[in-house]
Amino acid sequence: MEASAIVRTVRERAAELLASGRVDLVIGFEQGSMPMRAAPCFVSDADGTDRLVWNSFCGVNLARFLRGRHGRIAVVAKACDTRALVELIKENQLCRTDMVVIGVPCAGMVDSAAVEEITGHAGITGVEEADGRLLLTAGGSPVSLPREDVLCRSCRRCSTRNPVICDIAVGERAPEPEIPGFLDVDQFAALPSEERRTRIEAEMKRCIRCNACRNVCPMCYCVRCFADDAFPQWVGRGGDPGSVMSFHLVRALHLAGRCVECGACERACPTGVDLGILNRRMSADVYRHFGYRPGMAPEIPSPLSTFSPGDPEDFMLEPDRGRSCGCGG
């Protein structure tokens, strides 16, 4: 289905939902204030649905915006948005029956910063899409780029292109590429530890603690983030590089088994910190130890959020197992 057809269907369905009173609010995207921008948009009456758009710049994870709102909400959701919705449902933050998911297949979102880089920061005044290419007007001249070359980092490694929960399906199923899982993680892990450390430190050094990564993340919904806690103060707020590192490490741990790898954090970061370097490693570990990918099905509990007295405890034992019960006196 053509992008324009998707937009048309989204608008029609949203208008129907609002007109019929099935939902009180539709959350989707509208054209941003500039080319290559789409902004979250909140429509509460059928007339307003003409604002809704769908294009390659709808990178924000809209699951972020459902919590704490009253009434029934329809959300225009791509695959990673629905995965986040699934996790939020599991974690009691959203009620499946209070939402209508307008599912849109996704061919990956475009990284506007990458486009700007390629076009040398010449003013981009227009953008269109056709046949997998972006047709831009940059500095007044036409430029054509293959979408694949300018996809967001997270979208390049994404193999879940279709909504995992959906009430109203828009468009045809997107082909889901076979992507070898966690190559990037393994490549990074294969580096000497000094090199890894240097890489991570370089990334962390750029962080200005603006909290965009956290605030844009659909899974970071704590009423009060540990990073803002004063007593005990888990993370220093000053300039200590260790504090910055702690913030991101603990956040990665909090997201382990929950991160849906939508990449919203990386896209939001104003200084381009590669947060995947931490979060992807957690995802890889959770997948490899538990065969679990977050957000794929509401009925599968997250392995790190469950406990049974019979859980294996081998990991607590010393290499010479069986002797570490501490009973040795």
């Binding site: 974690e91 009691n92 933050q93 919904y221 704590c222 009423v223 009060r224 959020s305 469950t306 406990f307």
Partner: peptide
């Protein structure tokens, strides 16, 4: 309760069933 977001993981892991999520207050 000022920090609790009602995600319910505590109730899920409690082996003594001592934690519950208040449906009203979440």
């Amino acid at each position: 309760s000022a920090k609790c977001s009602g995600c319910g993981i505590c109730a899920l892991v409690c082996p003594f069933r001592a934690v519950e999520i208040d449906a009203e207050e979440h």
